[in-house]
């Protein structure tokens, strides 16, 4: 849509073949991301966020993935059309990814410095000494104290926050244009979460890369993301600039998500509003709006027909038959 978009996903469908049937994990997602911007991707577990991220990276095995349609345009190339070899050259170098659990994302029997150096040697053919020197620099740049010593550590000698910093150093090693962070702070202590988010924001600004931040925590999004896409049952149901969207959610699901998190401004003993039920099975999703079975505002039409997407000024979109009025939440 935007001419200068670094990443432009058009009607993307990623279905997964499972023994119980075809799971429509990503079912018609369109989203754009300009260079140097941060997109927060929000939603409950099982709504397709991680599958979307792995689809971009091409990390889902062909035996499982049914590329049901759509395009992933990155820097003008359709990633879905690339061969595995071409994708490999892109992964880690132009698009990097960090994962939820830093405790398991590092190879337990390899020194941290070697794991960072490994990417450099892979993509730039750096010499061993050069890779090691860069690894120490990278460790320093992600705020690890005494990086020379830490480069020789094994992962089990580091704390969770340190390990996530190492993962970030690995991801940043080749100066990617796009970094996908899949729940990067979920497995960490709250104080460490804030540090990691600050680090991600700093590095994004310094390197001018784009960032996709996947989370189920709206507070995380509020602090870091320029724009937010809310995902539900394999689709993006609401999209907008972070401040606009959080100030005036239009889709009842977004509002419900916001109400299910505690806020400091609430009076004491305020009950949290949980969303009733669970996300639908994506093997056979509901016919109408996929949120209708759980929606407090659902009407006849919501259950019968898929909602249409309404576009408003300022890149604001929502997919709902009966959107909330501005100023509701």
């Amino acid at each position: 849509m935007t001419a200068g978009a670094l990443l432009s996903i058009r009607g993307l469908k990623s279905y997964l073949r499972t023994p119980r049937g075809l799971v429509r994990a990503v079912d018609g997602v369109s989203v754009d991301l300009a260079a140097g911007r941060t997109l927060g991707l929000v939603g409950e577990s099982g709504c397709g966020k991680s599958i979307l991220a792995r689809s971009i990276m091409g990390l889902i095995a062909d035996a499982v993935l049914d590329k049901a349609g759509g395009q992933i345009l990155f820097d003008g190339r359709d990633l879905r059309g690339l061969s595995e070899k071409e994708m490999r050259r892109l992964r880690g170098r132009e698009i990097a990814m960090i994962f939820q659990d830093p405790m398991t994302s590092l190879n337990p029997v390899m020194r941290v410095g070697d794991q960072i150096g490994q990417v450099l040697r892979l993509h730039f053919g750096s010499s061993k000494a050069e890779a090691q020197r860069r690894a120490v620099e990278l460790l320093a740049s992600v705020g690890i104290p005494s990086p020379e010593r830490r480069a020789r550590s094994f992962p089990h000698e580091l704390s969770g926050g340190m390990r996530q910093r190492v993962m970030i150093a690995i991801a940043l090693a080749c100066d990617p244009k796009l970094l996908i962070a899949d729940e990067p702070t979920t497995a960490l202590d709250v104080t460490v979460q804030a540090q990691i988010l600050r680090l991600l924001r700093e590095q994004r600004e310094k390197r001018g890369m784009a960032l996709i931040l996947i989370t189920h925590n709206l507070g995380v999004v509020a602090g870091v993301a320029d724009e937010v896409a809310v995902m539900y049952a394999g689709r993006i149901v609401e999209h907008g600039q972070t401040a606009d969207l959080l100030r005036a959610p239009r889709m009842p699901y977004t509002a419900a998500l916001m109400q299910s998190a505690p806020r400091l401004a609430d009076p004491p003993h305020t009950r949290l509003q949980a969303i009733q039920g669970r996300p639908p099975m994506l093997i056979d999703p509901p016919a109408g709006c996929r949120f209708a079975p759980r929606c407090t505002r659902a009407a006849e039409i919501c259950r019968r027909e898929p909602a249409e997407t309404t576009e408003a000024s300022g890149e604001r979109r929502w997919t709902c038959w009966r959107p909330l009025e501005v100023g509701h939440a």
């Binding site: 990390l59 490999r88 050259r89 892109l90 992964r91 994962f99 398991t104 994302s105 590092l106 190879n107």
Partner: peptide, 16 residues
Amino acid sequence: REFVLAARAMGMRNGR
């Protein structure tokens, strides 16, 4: 394990 996925996300070949 996730570190194998992470290695793949780094662009590593299967053999490696």
